[in-house]
Structure formats: C-alpha cells, structure tokens
Design a protein around this nucleic acid. Sequence first.
DNA 1: AAAAAAC
Length: 616
Amino acid sequence: MTWSDGVTESTRRPQTRPTQLPYVPPHLRNNCNDGAFSSMPTSLNDYAVNNANSYGFTSTTESTQAPLGRGGRGYGHRGRGGRGRFHQTQEQEQEPYNIASKLEELEVNVDDESTNFGAYEDIPVEVSGSEIPPPASSFEEIELGESLNRNIKRCKYVKPTPIQRHAIPIALAGRDLMACAQTGSGKTAAFCFPIIHAILELNRFSKPGRVAFPLALILSPTRELACQIYEEAKKFAYQTRVRVAVAYGGAPIVHQLHNLEKGVDILVATPGRLVDMIERAKVSLSMIRCLALDEADRMLDMGFEPQIRKIVQQMDMPPCGSRQTLFFSATFPDEIQRLASDFLSNYIFLSVGRVGSSTDLIAQRVEFVPNMDKRNHLMNLLRGQNANGTHGKHALTLIFVETKRGADALEHWLSVNGFPAIAIHGDKVQMERERALKSFKSGYTPILVATDVASRGLDVPHVAHVINFDLPKDIDDYVHRIGRTGRAGKSGLATAFFSDQNMPLAKALVELLQEANQEVPLWLNDYAKRASNIVGGGRARRFGGSKFGGYDFRRDAPYEIENDPYSSTYGSFDGTTSSYDLSHANSYAATGVDSYSTGSYGHEFSHETIVASGWD
DNA sequence: AAAAAAC
C-alpha cells in the first residue's frame, strides 16, 4: 500500500489480467488424493440421509413424507421415511439423537492439526467498481515484505483464502473496499496484512506521548471481538515496529491509556470507549490513514450508526477520500450498503461466496420445537452428546437464546440438570464475560449459552455444534451465529429450534438452506409459502438477474447513482452489470471492464496445513 | 421487543 504517495493517487490500472487459478481452501490441501478428497462430502451426505430418521422432528404436515433432498450436493437420494413423532417424547428418550457419533462422522473439529477433505466447488467471486486490482494467488506474489511474511508463516498461513487473494491487492492499492466473505474464511488477516504493510512502508512509527495518534483504526461491535482482533493483529505485527493497542469498555481505562501512551500505530476499539478517549483528548484520529470496520453491517445498523457517524464524521478523522476505508462482513444487506457508501470513496465491492450465505462446511438442521418443549428437546440433544463421551474440548456446544434473562435461566437450568454450562451476555460485568468465554474455550464448561453478544466474529476452535435455541429475527444474524462453527475449513453442525413465532424467518431460512445445499424440511417449506403470502415475510435482499450478481447495490440502482449527490465518488463506475466467468477472463484484461465474477474455481491439490485462529 | 456499545 502506498499511503506515502497519498491515498487517492495510489490507484492504478491493473497491469496484468487476474490470475484465475483454481482455488482450494487451505484445509483441503493436505495429502489430497482423489479417494480422500471425496470422503468428506460423502460422509456429509450419508449423514444427512441416514439421520433423517433419528432426527425425525416434523410437523404434522409432513407426517410420513420422506425428507426432501439431502444435505450434500445434488438430489440423487431420498431420505428414508422420517416419522413425524414430535410429540412422542418417550420415543426420543429411547432413540436419543446420537450427536457425538455424527460429529465424528463429520470429522467435526477432531483435531486442530487434522484436515478435512472436501471441496468448495463453486465459490462465486464478484468484484465491481472501477480499475480493479487483480487478485493474487500466493502471499509471496503479494510482496508483503520480509517481516510480515515471516509472521504469516509463523501463523501457519500457507496460501491466501479467496477473500485474502482478492481483498489484499485491493487494499494494498489504496482502494476503498466493501468486502463480503463467509464466516470463518479469513477476513481479519485480509484487512490486517495490508494495514501493517502500509505502516511498514510509510516507515513512520508512532512515538510515545500523552496523546496517541494511530495511523489505522479498526472498529468492532463487541468487546470480545475487539480483543480477538487485537490479539490477531499483534501476532501479525510481531517483531515489526508496528504497535497495536486496544480500547473497549467495561475494563479499567487506565491500563488501556497507559498502553496508548507508549505509542500506537493500529488501534482496535469498540465505539463507546473510543469516543470517551477522544473526548478526554487521549486519542486523536487526525493521523488516521486507514479505517477498517469489521462486521461493518452491524456497525452501521440502527444501534451503532450514530456512534460510527460521530467517530468518522464529527471527530478529527480525515474525510472520506483522504483516508482509506475498508468494510468487512459476511452479510451486507442492501440498505446498509447504501448507508455505507457515505463513508466510502470510489470503492470496490467484493464478494466471495454469495453475500449472506453460509458455508457448506456447516451441516444445518431445522427442527420444529414448540417453545414449551425446547428445554426437553435440548436435554435430549445434549444427552446424546454426553453419551459418547466426546463432549469435551473437542466438541464445544454454543447455544443461542434471545434474551439476557433467557441466557441466565437456561444456564441455571442446564447446571441444575448436570450439564456444565455458562452464560455470556451484556448484563454481565466484563470480567464475568471474559471468564465465561475463557471457561468455554478451555472446555472447562463445554456449553456456552449466549445472546447475540457472541454471534459475530468470535473465533472459538472446537465449536462443533451451534444450537439456535431461540432463532433470531434476522436471517443475517442466523448466518453469523451458525458461523461460530465450521471455521477455517473445519466442518460443523448447526441445529435450530423453529417454533410458531419464527414464521417470519421461514422464507429466508429456506432460501439459505437451499443455497447451502441443505435439506429443507417439508413443513418448513410450507411455513415459508404461508409466510410469503404475508407482507414482510423474509427479506427482500437477494434479487438481480444474473446468477451471482445483484450484490453490489450500485448495480441495482444505476439511476440513484446518477442522481446521487455523491455520484462523483463513484469514479468511473458506470453501473454496468457485466459478468465474466473463467472463459471470459481474457476479455477482462483486454477491455479493462469494471467488474467480473467467477462461477467456479475448480479444484487444486497441494500439501499444506493451516491453523485456525482469528479467521473472521 | 431484543442485543450491543462509555462512565
């Protein structure tokens, strides 16, 4: 990145055509051969088909119907007849859902060093905007510099993930970016590497002093996520002169201030504490070269947007255009994209995987469970896990509930019933929150009951099972929640308890399951159809003509762009919706068109391992 | 109607 040249001047026309090499995620590159390669998806399929029975929770509308399709790709099989026996708790007791063996079958988080074999067959990549820098295929090719490369190796990152391959060159070129990539696919590194590289290039490090002048600011919606990003960034900046600091509420401010006084290049923060520090004149944003928002859609939603606007537009931060701005998330609803463009200048829109989609590393199940039966049903699930003795460090269970009170209540109820559970939510003091998370991570209490405080970004290895005890109202929240498992190439399981009051979510849930090649229960389909007749059912988010297109909201609203007071910030973006697959890669180079997308990366084999951590 | 985020 060439901040020293001036951020806005550093954009350049791509010199070479994008190297569209076949992509295989890092975890798939270990000792691959055709036989092993095909083993995982097969077990996934078998899993879905064979367990249609033991799962078997269906509404009366399904009764004796076989489940539709299967969990894998294609619809060649039909599950054997699932019996609708959702009132028959007796039978549940006799035939508890044997989750432990299923987790083994799925090779869920068996071992950090183990690799799972499978394929991302179709990872659509869409890039739009003007003068798009081409993606890179290796870290070496990106030339991040010796010290950073050393740290990348230390972290056992061998090959960039798709989001990294595309986002890092864009960020290095100094461009603003709105990036969407699936949970657990390596977003943290995708914005940390370019930031650290740019600071090293700038070769002007912060000095100790009463007021801190960070060069880069990374914002996070929760304290725990801020901590996690901070820890990651520190690893990446190890033995460089780049200093990283963190600022978040609920912890004594003096320690954080003390650290700031030593000099800060990269500040990771939650909004409230940051504003506090700025108002105390302990931090100045006047030197900020790069602003990165993790979970950017959350940061710009109703609850957070005023604070972000204050920090970005009403403090001493350099204005849009004279700083670089990077937005990252797994989800990016249309209306939030529109809002986000206020903070961006001539930005590039990048999506790896469909926006808001989940990864197919997560096997998703939806069961109809009336509110009254939820606890009993949960008990049966957990008993199934316990029975096989694998409910330890290698199979953590994360249970999401709707309310803070509900989290406490469920924690208590589980504890009383002999399940080692602990709760985390925003009414606990920070120390309790951190203790709960630590206790969960260590496996000391392998069950964590959480509100949405834990739904985004947190990277906890060994989370094998995410249970949506209460489903969220927003499908995007669901995507983030289940994204706590199936990270960095590991597979995972997500179970949702769907009750009558989740009707509004049915349509979006069905669409998501279909996209992720998951089995859609017939009864859920019925709910979705009924719900779609009611105004407001689902979310009008996925539209657009082309198969993968319609994600960059600028494409859907060319007129608004022309009439928009900010239209100049769009540079030469012309609202075209060109779409290119591999066979058209050449035309990209020849014409310098402003967007391209790929439908498939194909497959590739190599021999590499990767260690999970801080992937979001 | 809920959750998160400063003291």
